[in-house]
Computed example of a mutant assay.
Amino acid sequence: MSGLPVFVSAGEALTDMLRDGADNWTSQVGGSTWNVARVMARLGVPSAFAGAVSDDVFGDALLRASAEAGLDSRFLQRLGHSPLLAIVYERNPPRYFFVGDDSADLYFDPDRLPAGWHGAASWVHFGGISLARPPLRDTLLALAVRLKEQGVAISYDPNYRALMDERYDPVLRQMTALADVIKVSDEDLCGLFRCQDPEPALAALRALNPGALYLYTLGAAGARLLHGGHTWSAPAPEVRVADTVGAGDASIAALLYSLMRQPEAGMDQHLRYAVAGGAAACLAPGAAPPTLEQLQQQLPAVSVYNHQAVQS
């Protein structure tokens, strides 16, 4: 492997420990930023996940899944620290906590990445719980600032989790101000802004960076794309849902894929890809990255509405 990836996602890769019944547990590889990298690779974009995992059986599983996805292995660091685990003890509604006080992810070192990688990358993605876990948080914030100064495009998905309390507010402000593309869901907004109505929260978030492109996902109701004074919306196509895990990660990845591969396309087409990507991810159980063929099969079923055009 000689060429460097054009897309890099930096953050956390972890293991979900899922409770099935009183004493039955299953494990599943995961992590928001890691999932985005896997989707991009599955869509055919030379990609990497930049992060650290444990040097044990949990890290082995993440290494295998990364290789199966086609991610550049030079960006995944193996360290002799404990694994990062998400203990999901109830599924509906989800109740969970994280185990990883001194885990490998916290020791990720950008200086160990391949020489010249930031010159090859056109986009770098940030988000997930990695930005809520010091000292990794500070490492990634500093990296995002450096990349922005070097002209690399930044995407950001906070992907709200319970540990993102008021201590996360400065991170939200800084990353939103840095990012070119920001993905957020209605549930994210209510959690991040500690409110019941996501619409004022969305307006407050956009005020932090009015020039950014915002992908606002609404679950089964579809998504909106917002840029400047323009809004495009698209209902979700009807699909036979096997699992919604990873749908949000697939939607931001599909949007970035569209922006990278067809930059001349209109915002309606970019949103169509984002919604189709999220729908395609629901076709298989677990955070299964959709193929480009699966994504494209969903495109004809996605209708996009330009709200500016309707108002005029």
Score class of each variant (00 low, 15 high):
296 Q>F: 04
94 P>W: 00
98 F>N: 02
108 F>Q: 10
156 Y>W: 04
289 P>W: 05
227 H>T: 12
240 R>H: 08
224 R>P: 13
200 P>T: 00
259 L>H: 00
296 Q>H: 08
259 L>Q: 01
165 D>M: 02
184 V>T: 11
199 E>W: 11
81 H>F: 15
303 S>A: 15
269 Q>D: 00
8 V>R: 07
29 V>R: 09
309 A>Y: 10
61 A>D: 14
274 A>F: 02
258 S>I: 09
256 L>I: 08
240 R>C: 12
169 D>W: 15
279 A>Y: 02
76 L>V: 05
249 D>C: 06
265 A>S: 09
217 T>R: 00
35 N>M: 07
273 Y>Q: 04
286 G>W: 08
289 P>R: 07
119 G>F: 14
232 W>L: 14
305 Y>A: 13
131 L>R: 08
68 E>C: 07
46 P>C: 00
266 G>F: 13
93 P>M: 09
276 A>Y: 05
76 L>M: 15
22 A>W: 12
189 L>H: 12
35 N>Y: 04
36 V>I: 05
287 A>V: 01
290 P>T: 05
178 L>A: 13
144 A>Y: 10
286 G>I: 10
235 P>R: 09
78 R>F: 09
59 G>F: 07
70 G>Q: 04
1 M>V: 15
202 L>A: 07
252 I>Q: 03
9 S>L: 04
269 Q>K: 13
25 W>Q: 10
157 D>L: 00
252 I>C: 09
196 Q>Y: 06
119 G>H: 09
127 G>M: 07
90 E>V: 07
227 H>L: 05
267 M>W: 13
279 A>E: 03
193 F>Q: 14
148 K>L: 03
42 R>Q: 15
31 G>H: 10
190 C>K: 08
18 L>P: 05
222 G>N: 09
23 D>M: 14
94 P>T: 08
89 Y>S: 04
259 L>E: 01
251 S>W: 09
255 L>C: 03
67 A>Q: 10
173 R>E: 14
238 E>K: 15
143 L>N: 02
73 S>D: 08
156 Y>Q: 12
36 V>S: 03
305 Y>S: 14
20 D>G: 14
31 G>F: 01
95 R>M: 05
117 W>F: 07
81 H>E: 05
181 V>N: 02
250 A>C: 02
269 Q>E: 15
82 S>V: 00
184 V>S: 12
290 P>H: 08
9 S>D: 00
115 A>S: 03
268 D>M: 09
219 G>V: 11
57 V>E: 13
142 A>W: 13
274 A>K: 09
293 E>D: 05
306 N>T: 01
267 M>D: 12
265 A>L: 03
164 M>P: 13
172 L>G: 06
241 V>G: 07
68 E>H: 15
98 F>C: 02
242 A>D: 02
75 F>N: 05
242 A>M: 09
105 D>G: 06
132 A>N: 13
163 L>G: 06
48 A>Q: 08
293 E>G: 10
160 Y>K: 08
285 P>A: 05
290 P>M: 00
37 A>W: 12
241 V>H: 03
169 D>G: 09
262 Q>D: 01
13 A>D: 07
243 D>Y: 11
171 V>D: 10
110 P>Q: 01
130 S>M: 04
111 D>G: 15
200 P>S: 04
91 R>E: 06
85 L>H: 01
107 Y>V: 15
231 T>R: 06
63 L>M: 05
253 A>R: 00
160 Y>R: 06
52 A>G: 01
167 R>H: 07
